[in-house]
Nucleic acid binder design. Structure first.
Lengths: 141, 141
DNA sequence: CTCCGTGCAAAAGGTTTGCACCTGG
DNA sequence: CCAGGTGCAAACCTTTTGCACGGAG
């Protein structure tokens, strides 16, 4: 796992994150995963690796990393939020409604950019967008 | 030939929905609303109209209507699901992360259709998609 | 008379909070 | 030391389930 950690510009409100086994393992697990993981997924994987971690702690850890911009929250399942590395290239998801698997999708962004430009012209600030496709994957048909 | 005696099994037919004050009011409220409503929103509106309705009942009612294809579930807030009339033209949403308001967005579908065709060619069945833009609306800037 | 609509209580399941203690820098 | 990391219990909030009854068709 080779991650470049951006030099901090010492913004007073920002937490300085320390090293911790949990955080290291979290990045490891996320970069090995082909799809975004929910808190409960991560908890399970941690357990299988004999790293005992409290659920609450993990929730807080993940929130820290989302705030600091290292993780991205992804809403795939209406019941739970999943997370992926923010360092991944911008992409979208295909979600199989049968087995809940998730695959990355590349999508030409021009039309999205055009729409965003249109919105900006109306005085709206667009920060990000999400595009998901739903259906049945090859394995499930 | 060992002819199997046909069982009087009910083929899972759809529920026949009866008339009910709740359902009528639900459609009324949803068609008057400019944005998708969550269960709790609806409950509040019902209360303001002096129509007492149990939360559980509403959950079930809405689920029935989603199943029968009259409502569409929309995931805008990670914490709760919202609903809109399925009879609305296909569209997407802009969500203001400051005031949580939602506006409909028209978006050229060609690129999405192209991507869907590509997926179908890979043996994937695409049933639907969702596209949301997030940012700050005019009122909040 | 048979489903569907409804209410109430309680459970379920994901997420957050409060408090206390530990620990890296 | 001190702020961040951690654990535990309990609260919170949305959604689901079980059970019972009444009413439309």
């Amino acid at each position: 796992m080779n991650r470049v950690i951006p030099k901090e510009e010492k913004i007073p409100t920002e937490k300085r994150l320390r090293k911790s086994k949990t955080r290291t393992l979290l990045f490891e697990v996320l970069s090995e995963s082909a799809e975004p993981l929910s808190i409960l997924d991560i908890l399970e994987i941690f357990a299988s690796r004999k790293h005992h971690i409290n659920k609450t702690t993990l929730y807080r850890e993940v929130e820290n990393l989302v705030t600091s911009g290292e993780l991205r929250a992804v809403q795939i399942d209406s019941r739970r939020v999943s997370y992926e590395l923010a360092s991944l290239d911008h992409h979208h998801h295909f979600v199989c409604t049968s087995c809940d698997s998730v695959a990355d999708i590349v999508f030409p962004e021009e039309s999205i950019e055009k729409t965003e430009a249109l919105l900006e012209k109306q005085g709206i600030v667009v920060t990000h967008h999400a595009l998901e496709f739903f259906g049945v994957c090859k394995m499930c048909t």
